[in-house]
Design a protein around this nucleic acid. Structure first.
Lengths: 175, 175
DNA sequence: GATTCCGTACTCGGATAATCCGTGTCCGAGTGCTCCGGG
DNA sequence: CCCGGAGCACTCGGACACGGATTATCCGAGTACGGAATC
């Protein structure tokens, strides 16, 4: 039971992207610099988020990444599943029927009780993650965190965000 | 987020050991045969359970493994933590302060909100696992599972359990 | 015949290789800007 | 002076090595039983 460290990077990047204006973008290199990560490797995880329709990518110069939908509709569960995979952590290998005694298949129609219990726990885990909206993460950060870190983050965003002209120069704010 | 497959084997073995009489034991080789696993490798996981004081091992001929305490006092959380390690799945690397901007350490006394959210979800996961007692797993299996599998399991246990004489040669039969 | 000693067989335990996944890096495809030449 | 096109720089995207952890295996330490020799 160990999550890859890419999860942390993905959530931080998503939270930072939640703070940019309208449809502006931020390059992966900028975010990699902000967190001291390998740019090439961060792209890999950002690409997973893009595939999962959580982020949108804009190619070309002045391109970058952007949230695909409002932060209110993005949960930590979405991000975690995108990076770590959607399949549950506990995979029942049905070792109960691997023994030398070979019963009829009809004896195994009922699911394994152990699998049921483990999946129930995992549902609780995912439910807790599904209730954590990205907007809540950002709001809590803005309210509770040290004002210096908030100011530093906002300054970094202001400095690295890149407005996009093609879609709308009067951004459709959905906040 | 992926659990090792040893977890499944460990839980199945613990459940099987919950069905043996009194202080009898069952050899690791027998359990490996029951689930079609590598005997040498299963020993590794059983050893982890022994180190965690969940199982007791009896060396020598007619030796084997045995629950260290009643099944009512063993939870799935105990087993999972023993095999997978006690540290949480999400480890906050504090990448928020790895950037080029180096603020004073006093700015980071508040814990990272992302870490808080992830750990909260993991607490829910562990709480659900802590409520699943091994005795409940066995009881549900006895009641709900297919009678053929129950009979087969009981027969296997009867055939492979080895009574221990040193502690009591009149075993308290509860069958 | 009883006792004691030794050998054996069986068990768990830890140390040792092979394999898979996560980590990290690199290079290529695509796009928009920019500069230069022509009209 | 205006327009068109080629070149270029920057971006993301996917393909390619490396390391560590998990998986799998083997051999050694320890113990109880069984048999045989001895008293």
């Amino acid at each position: 039971m160990k999550l890859g460290e890419g999860v942390e990077a993905a959530i931080h990047c998503a939270a930072m992207l939640a703070g940019i204006d309208g449809n502006s973008t931020m390059s992966g290199a900028a975010m990699a610099e902000a967190f001291g990560l390998s740019p090439s490797y961060l792209l890999k995880h950002l690409n997973q988020l893009t595939t999962a329709r959580i982020l949108e990518s804009v190619p070309g110069p002045a391109g970058g990444y952007r949230l695909a939908r409002p932060a209110e509709r993005i949960t930590l569960l979405d991000i975690v599943l995108s990076v770590e995979g959607r399949e549950p952590a506990f995979r029942c290998g049905e070792i109960r029927q691997r023994g030398p005694v070979r019963l009829d298949a009809s004896a195994y129609v009922k699911p394994c009780g152990i699998n049921t219990a483990m999946l129930k726990a995992e549902r609780a885990y995912r439910a807790a993650l599904a209730e954590a909206k990205l907007s809540d993460i950002v709001a809590d950060f803005m309210n509770d965190a040290d004002p210096r870190t908030v100011a530093a983050s906002c300054a970094f965003v202001e400095r690295h965000q890149r407005p996009q002209k093609n879609q709308s120069n009067q951004p459709n704010q959905q906040a």
